[in-house]
Amino acid sequence: MKTIITNKFSRAFAVLLLLTLSGVVTANTECTYNSDNQITTDVSGDGWCLERDSLARKVSAYKFGLCTELPYANNFQSVCEFIYESDAALELIAEKGVTSSVSGIGDFFLTHDKLFTHSVLLLDYNSATKGLAQFTEAQTGSTGTGTYCWSNGRKFYDVDSSDRTKWSAECGTLAESNPQWNSRSYHLFADAGNPNIPALERNFPNWDGGWTNILLDSNLDAAAYTSSAPYDFDSTTNTKYWLAGRGIDSGRGITVTPLTKGLDIQFKVSWGNTISHNSTGIWSMSPAGFDLTIDLK
């Protein structure tokens, strides 16, 4: 039997205190901060780190659902029940310090007395982020210098770390800051174990109840390379979608009953911005991860 649920979907941004990613899990390094929320990471050489609290994160979802097990390309359509499913993408924008309702999701049905352990989002492979970070020392951006750096609206494919005029981060004073959406099309991921290797999936089945990140083609099958080996990050693929599975309550899950009135679903973007740096300055801000929390109402 299925229970009708009145939509209680909300979007929110907050520092996700439940999420403490390690470098092993993300193949990235968290930015370190002092008590004044200034980044203390050594950015004097080549590297990157994850900004703790980006200003905003934007994705477009074609499907959103709850699943009875960790969703993969070969099972998500059979183990998940969808509360949103459309050829028209639902834009989800999470903003720091803002909680607001999302329009476009009506009432939906879920099977009651079934344990849903994971959520799933089928996303467009293009997404965007806004970042604004303060450093303890002045940094160099695309045209300016200062202790604040922010995203300047450049698309990832048009960024060149060796050409300052093509950097996607600007630096200056807080008064000068004007964060814009920096977008990136994920036709490839970095491998979960080695960020220097391209991959079509980036899965952490043992992390926080299990996470999957899998690129799919237009037929919702696993994406494939359309260029010849050996593969690098310039290789072409037939990617159209990003399948993102996340554990609900670290995989413990929720069970919908006839008394369930709704779901409180929060799309969060902590650690949603990667800051890249080299000996010259802060040359990139680009979309990274996101998380979901789901509770019964």
Rank of each mutant, 00 (worst) to 15 (best):
S284D: 14
I265V: 15
S35E: 09
V15Y: 07
L17R: 12
A27Q: 14
W207T: 15
W167R: 04
D46K: 09
Y62W: 06
A94G: 13
K8Y: 12
F109P: 05
V269W: 07
G104S: 08
A199C: 10
Q38C: 07
T129A: 12
V24G: 09
N238L: 07
L292N: 06
G141T: 04
L215I: 06
G97H: 06
V102S: 03
Y231L: 09
L132P: 10
N7Q: 08
A244K: 15
E51G: 13
R52D: 12
T143C: 05
T239K: 10
V159F: 02
I93F: 11
N273F: 08
S250R: 13
T260N: 03
T68Q: 01
T147H: 03
S228N: 11
F156M: 06
L296K: 03
S100V: 06
S227R: 05
Q134F: 06
A190W: 09
K114T: 15
V120R: 03
N34P: 11
V159L: 05
L174I: 10
T3K: 14
I275W: 01
T212G: 11
A175Q: 11
Y62H: 12
T3F: 03
E95N: 01
G97Q: 10
E51Y: 13
E137G: 00
N34L: 06
L115Y: 01
K261I: 05
L220C: 10
R164T: 07
E91D: 12
V59E: 01
P71R: 08
I275A: 03
C49I: 10
T117A: 09
D264F: 11
N28Y: 15
I105W: 12
W207L: 11
N34I: 10
W207C: 12
Y72P: 00
L19E: 13
I254G: 02
E170R: 01
T165S: 13
Y241V: 12
Y62R: 05
P230H: 13
Y157G: 03
S54P: 11
F189V: 06
E176N: 14
G193V: 14
S235V: 04
T226K: 07
K114S: 10
S168W: 02
S119N: 04
D249G: 08
A88Y: 04
S22P: 02
G23W: 07
C149N: 00
P230S: 13
D264S: 15
L110Q: 05
S100C: 05
V25P: 00
N203I: 08
V159R: 00
G172T: 01
A89E: 06
N37P: 00
F135N: 09
D158T: 14
T237R: 02
A89N: 05
S127I: 08
I197E: 07
T173I: 11
S279H: 02
N126V: 09
